Simulated assay, not measured.
Amino acid sequence: MNMNVAGIDVSYQTVTLVISQAGRMGKSREFKNTSQGHATLINRLRKAQVSRVGLEATGLYHLDLALDDAGLEVMVINPKAAKRFAEAMQTRTKTDAVDATLLAQFALRMPFEPWQRPDALALTIRACARRIAALNQLRTQTKNQLHAAEQTAATPDFLLADLQQSITQLDAQIEHLRQQVLDLIAADQDLQPTFELLISVTGIAAASAIQLLGKLLVLPHDMRAKQWVARAGLDPRQHQSGSSVNKKLRLSKAGNRYLRIALYMPALSAARHDPNVRADYRHLIERRGLKKIQAVCAIMR
C-alpha cells in the first residue's frame, strides 16, 4: 500500500506524530497540544501528503475537529483495540513515540473506519452532560464528607456549614446546566421528539436522558441495534476452547464505559417500577440463575 498514513498519540501537553510513507515508519515528532500546535502538525501532515490519520480516543474532540477541517480522514481507535494490537505486535515498551507508531500501523493494516463528525449541538450537549456528571460525582463526595463529619462531635459547626453550602452550590450548578441543555433540546425540532421518546421509557427521567443523549448523539446515526449494544460494551463475550474450556458468558466491556454508567440507574429503576421489566428481571434471577448485577446488565442491554 502506497498510501501515506499517520499515527497521533495525544497527551495533556503534547501531541506525538509518526508518519508512515510507502510502508516505512518515520521518526516521531512532538507538537504542543494547543491550537497553534495543531496547526503546525496539520501543515506537517499536508507536506507529507498524508491522507489518513489514526489516533486513540482521548475523550476530547478539539484535535479530531481540526484534522477533519483540514480534509483528512480520521480514525478514532478504541483504546482496548489499540492495546490488543500492541500485544499482537509484541511491543515491549510504552512511550508516546511507540504509541504513535502503533496507531500509524493500526491505521495502515486494519480496516479503516473513518470518524464521522458530530454536529455542533451534539458536541455542546455532550460537553454539558460530562460537566453535569462531574458535578454529580463531586456532590456525592461532598455529601459523604458531610455524613462523616456529622458522626463526630469534634467537627466544628463552621465546617459543617461550609460542606452544606458546597452541596447547595453544586445543586444550583447542576440544575442551571440541566436547564440550559433542556432549552437547547426544546429549540431543536429534530431532537425534541427523541428526548420525549427517551423520557417516556420507565426509569429514564430528564437527568438520565441528558446523559444518554450526551453519549449517543456523537455516534453515527446509521448504527443498528447490535452495534449500539457493542458500542456500549454490553455484548456477551464467549470464552470456549476445545471440550474442557467453556466459561460462562460475560460482558465484553469493549465499549464506552460512560454509556454503561448512564444506562445503569435507569435499568435499575425500570427493574423496580416497570411490571414487564421487573418480571423479566426476576425471571433472569430465579429461572436463569443470574446474579442481580448480571440481570441489571441484561436490562441495560
Rank of each mutant, 00 (worst) to 15 (best):
Q189I: 02
D274E: 05
Y281F: 15
S11V: 00
V53W: 03
L198Q: 09
L45K: 03
Q173G: 01
K80A: 15
I185A: 05
A86E: 10
L191S: 05
A187E: 14
A48W: 00
L146N: 06
M265S: 07
R250H: 10
A205N: 15
A262S: 11
Q36Y: 06
A81E: 11
G233K: 09
V245S: 08
A149G: 13
S200E: 06
P193V: 00
L290V: 06
M110Q: 15
R46K: 15
D96N: 12
L159T: 11
A271T: 01
I210F: 04
E73K: 14
Q116S: 14
E73P: 00
D190A: 11
L170G: 07
A6H: 01
A230N: 08
R237M: 13
R109S: 05
R287L: 10
R46Y: 10
S51N: 12
A254S: 12
L213N: 04
R224D: 13
M89T: 07
N33V: 01
K83W: 15
A81H: 15
R257G: 01
D235R: 09
A209W: 04
Q151F: 06
M300K: 11
R92Q: 14
Y61K: 06
L182W: 01
T16R: 02
Q240M: 08
Q21F: 00
G242Q: 08
D68C: 11
Q151R: 15
T155Q: 07
R29I: 01
L138Q: 14
S208F: 02
S244R: 14
L182C: 01
S252R: 07
R84V: 06
G7R: 03
L191I: 08
L234H: 04
S166Y: 05
V10M: 05
E175V: 09
D222T: 11
L249E: 13
R257H: 09
A187I: 03
Q13S: 11
M1R: 13
Y264N: 07
T95R: 12
E196Q: 14
K292T: 10
Q169K: 12
L212S: 04
I293S: 14
P118E: 11
R29P: 03
V10L: 09
P193R: 04
W115K: 03
L212R: 03
V74H: 02
R250D: 00
A205F: 00
A254Y: 07
L160P: 04
D99R: 10
A205M: 02
I77C: 05
L159A: 15
L177M: 13
R109K: 13
V76N: 05
R250T: 12
I125Y: 04
K83A: 14
R130K: 13
T34I: 04
V98P: 00
L268T: 09
L213E: 01
Q90L: 10
D162K: 08
I204Y: 03
F31R: 10
T34M: 04
Q165W: 09
Q105S: 10
T58I: 02
I261K: 14
A86T: 08
G214F: 00
A57H: 14
Q105A: 09
L212T: 03
Q173L: 12
S166V: 06
K80S: 14
L160M: 10
K27H: 12
A298Q: 11
L177D: 09
A154S: 15
P220H: 09
A207L: 09
D274W: 00
R260Q: 11
T58D: 08
A70N: 10
A88F: 12
G214A: 00
R131L: 09
A279S: 13
A122L: 08
Q105W: 00
K83L: 12
A122T: 08
